[in-house]
Computed example of a mutant assay.
Amino acid sequence: MTGLLNNNFITQIGILVNDIDKVSQAYADFFGVAKPEAIITDTVDKAQTEYNGAASEARAKLAFFNMGSLQLELIEPDQHPSTWRDYLNEHGEGPHHIAFVIEGMKEKITLLESKGFPLQQKGEYTGGRYAYIDTFKELKVLIELLENDNK
């Protein structure tokens, strides 16, 4: 497979919202599924969150809808500086990113930066790590890289 990610399979679409409970209920009603429980991202000591190269206290409430091969992620950010907060302030509610599962996070970030797509935010989650790449100018949405630890 060609391309910068060696993977063209979109695994997730992330949508920024102001009220995760309200929007989660709307999606649940629309799709006729149970409303997922929202979770809160880890604190900076666990998540090691960095935004634009600096540590950030940013956290967000997340709700996930598993829709076949694609996951829909709703994101309600707190007020700390983050890709989520700044994007929501600038663009309003709506699509934020499309995500791909990759291997070799550091190498992929380096490759994408060399092509003019800078790292915007990164962090850890239980079982892996994520990175948001600023592809908005060209792709009109951010790309999120997800790397899961091998079990």
Results as ranks from 00 to 15, higher is better:
residue 62 L to Q: 13
residue 62 L to V: 11
residue 62 L to T: 11
residue 62 L to N: 11
residue 62 L to I: 10
residue 63 A to T: 09
residue 63 A to G: 12
residue 63 A to F: 06
residue 63 A to C: 14
residue 63 A to M: 09
residue 63 A to S: 14
residue 64 F to P: 07
residue 64 F to E: 04
residue 64 F to M: 10
residue 64 F to H: 09
residue 64 F to K: 07
residue 65 F to C: 07
residue 66 N to A: 11
residue 66 N to K: 15
residue 66 N to S: 11
residue 66 N to T: 12
residue 66 N to L: 14
residue 66 N to D: 11
residue 67 M to W: 10
residue 67 M to P: 03
residue 68 G to P: 04
residue 68 G to R: 04
residue 68 G to K: 04
residue 68 G to N: 10
residue 69 S to A: 13
residue 69 S to V: 08
residue 69 S to E: 14
residue 70 L to I: 12
residue 70 L to F: 12
residue 70 L to V: 14
residue 71 Q to L: 05
residue 71 Q to Y: 03
residue 71 Q to M: 10
residue 71 Q to H: 02
residue 72 L to T: 13
residue 72 L to H: 10
residue 72 L to P: 14
residue 72 L to G: 15
residue 73 E to P: 10
residue 73 E to F: 08
residue 73 E to L: 08
residue 74 L to I: 08
residue 74 L to V: 04
residue 74 L to M: 07
residue 74 L to G: 11
residue 74 L to F: 03
residue 74 L to H: 03
residue 74 L to Y: 05
residue 75 I to Q: 13
residue 75 I to W: 05
residue 75 I to F: 09
residue 75 I to D: 14
residue 75 I to T: 10
residue 75 I to H: 15
residue 76 E to P: 05
residue 76 E to M: 07
residue 76 E to V: 10
residue 76 E to C: 08
residue 76 E to T: 01
residue 77 P to M: 03
residue 77 P to A: 03
residue 77 P to K: 01
residue 78 D to S: 06
residue 78 D to K: 00
residue 78 D to C: 02
residue 78 D to F: 00
residue 78 D to L: 02
residue 79 Q to E: 15
residue 79 Q to H: 13
residue 79 Q to P: 00
residue 79 Q to S: 15
residue 80 H to Q: 11
residue 80 H to M: 15
residue 81 P to Y: 03
residue 81 P to K: 08
residue 81 P to D: 15
residue 81 P to M: 15
residue 81 P to S: 09
residue 81 P to Q: 10
residue 81 P to V: 03
residue 82 S to E: 12
residue 82 S to G: 04
residue 82 S to C: 06
residue 82 S to F: 01
residue 82 S to D: 09
residue 83 T to E: 11
residue 83 T to V: 06
residue 83 T to D: 15
residue 84 W to D: 12
residue 84 W to H: 04
residue 84 W to R: 00
residue 85 R to M: 04
residue 85 R to K: 12
residue 85 R to V: 00
residue 85 R to D: 00
residue 85 R to Y: 00
residue 86 D to M: 07
residue 86 D to K: 08
residue 86 D to G: 00
residue 86 D to H: 08
residue 87 Y to T: 15
residue 87 Y to P: 02
residue 87 Y to M: 10
residue 87 Y to Q: 13
residue 87 Y to N: 14
residue 88 L to V: 02
residue 88 L to P: 00
residue 88 L to G: 00
residue 88 L to F: 00
residue 88 L to I: 02
residue 89 N to R: 13
residue 89 N to L: 11
residue 89 N to H: 14
residue 90 E to P: 01
residue 90 E to A: 14
residue 90 E to F: 07
residue 90 E to I: 02
residue 90 E to D: 09
residue 91 H to D: 08
residue 91 H to L: 09
residue 91 H to P: 04
residue 92 G to C: 02
residue 92 G to Y: 06
residue 93 E to K: 01
residue 93 E to V: 06
residue 93 E to T: 07
residue 93 E to C: 14
residue 93 E to S: 03
residue 93 E to D: 00
residue 94 G to S: 12
residue 95 P to T: 04
residue 96 H to A: 03
residue 96 H to K: 01
residue 96 H to Y: 01
residue 96 H to W: 05
residue 97 H to D: 06
residue 97 H to S: 05
residue 97 H to K: 03
residue 98 I to T: 11
residue 99 A to K: 07
residue 99 A to T: 15
residue 99 A to R: 12
residue 99 A to P: 11
residue 99 A to C: 08
residue 100 F to D: 02
residue 100 F to K: 02
residue 100 F to W: 06
residue 101 V to K: 14
residue 101 V to W: 02
residue 101 V to Y: 08
residue 101 V to T: 13
residue 102 I to C: 07
residue 102 I to D: 11
